[in-house]
Design a protein around this nucleic acid. Sequence first.
DNA 1: ACCTGAACACCGTTCAAGT
DNA 2: ACCTGAACACCGTTCAAGT
Lengths: 201, 201
Amino acid sequence: MANAKRPYHHGNLRQALLETAHEMLQGTDGWQFTLRELARRAGVSHTASYKHFPDKAGLLAELAMLGFDTLRTELLAARPGRETGQRETFLAMSEAYVRFGVENANLYRLMFSADARRAASAQLKSQADAALQVLVDVLEEGQRRGWLRAKSAQAQAAASWAQLHGITLLNIDGWFDERTVGADGTRRALEVLLEGLERRG
Amino acid sequence: MANAKRPYHHGNLRQALLETAHEMLQGTDGWQFTLRELARRAGVSHTASYKHFPDKAGLLAELAMLGFDTLRTELLAARPGRETGQRETFLAMSEAYVRFGVENANLYRLMFSADARRAASAQLKSQADAALQVLVDVLEEGQRRGWLRAKSAQAQAAASWAQLHGITLLNIDGWFDERTVGADGTRRALEVLLEGLERRG
DNA sequence: ACCTGAACACCGTTCAAGT
DNA sequence: ACCTGAACACCGTTCAAGT
């Protein structure tokens, strides 16, 4: 919404650009929006962003980092109370992960894109690690309580992350349709994963 | 290699463009090469490709389909002789899948990109299905022989595919490094998957 | 039937100039 | 300190014209 009375100096253009970009990611045009279109929607000239971000990749990397932060928050929120069974906890978090990816498809893809990594590799990695840590915590507690097989929690986390990442992307890209994987493919794929994690009884 | 004596009519420009594009995918610049650069390398004007492909997405879709075909061939080639254990067969094919993705990172990403799907959705899907079928065959035989749990082979294939897709992309994007998932993360993630597929003994 | 060159409507980025 | 407008070197795509 362009404000006709906006002064020459925007005031908080950096924040406004990030928010507008985030809105654009909700659309169907992928995450490769143009900087010029972003500037148009924000109501500034197409060169204004260069005062706040080094270049396009820099702005995208910022968005990616916000994405990992949101993902971490949502994973934490999906962790039910301590009384709930650990299997349910794990499934709830897994479904929250996939839901986040599917509902923020463009952002999710951006988060794992080469562009984002090139611009802020180390910082992005630590943000991703923080999100992943929520999953690792649940797996480690599962081992301590004897729910999970006593394998390396790191390997279990790697397998879980890969499974969630794969399920999410296949869902986003429309490959996980009913004809290919049957009804409720996501849930059933998660259950196969669980079988591999849980202690054999 | 531009041939100075090439006549006005190229002869087989369509094929030449696909091959040159395939070479460009081996580079480090991602799959978003420009049509103009492709034309430059092929030694033709930047509009010549429009006689052979409807647009850029059409050319990319063609490359993606060739990619799925190659993947299928490599999965078949990785299937060892019938005498070999089924676990080894599955692991060999899984590693061939991941290797294909990592060694053809740009092509692999392109194969699953929205651009490729938009241009040739149905055809691409059936090519992907054909590649996936190799995996399904191994799983179904594993069920018949009692190696695998008697769950829906479709669900097992979905889980396996998601796992392979996730492992491949996390490897490509550099997330599966030693600090995060420990040594040989790919192999160990595959073993967790196998635990979930195999019959409990 | 196949290829070219000019043209159009776009990009990302730089930089001197404006407020 | 922050924003703009012209300019530069690119894109993808169209189309009349060349061989």
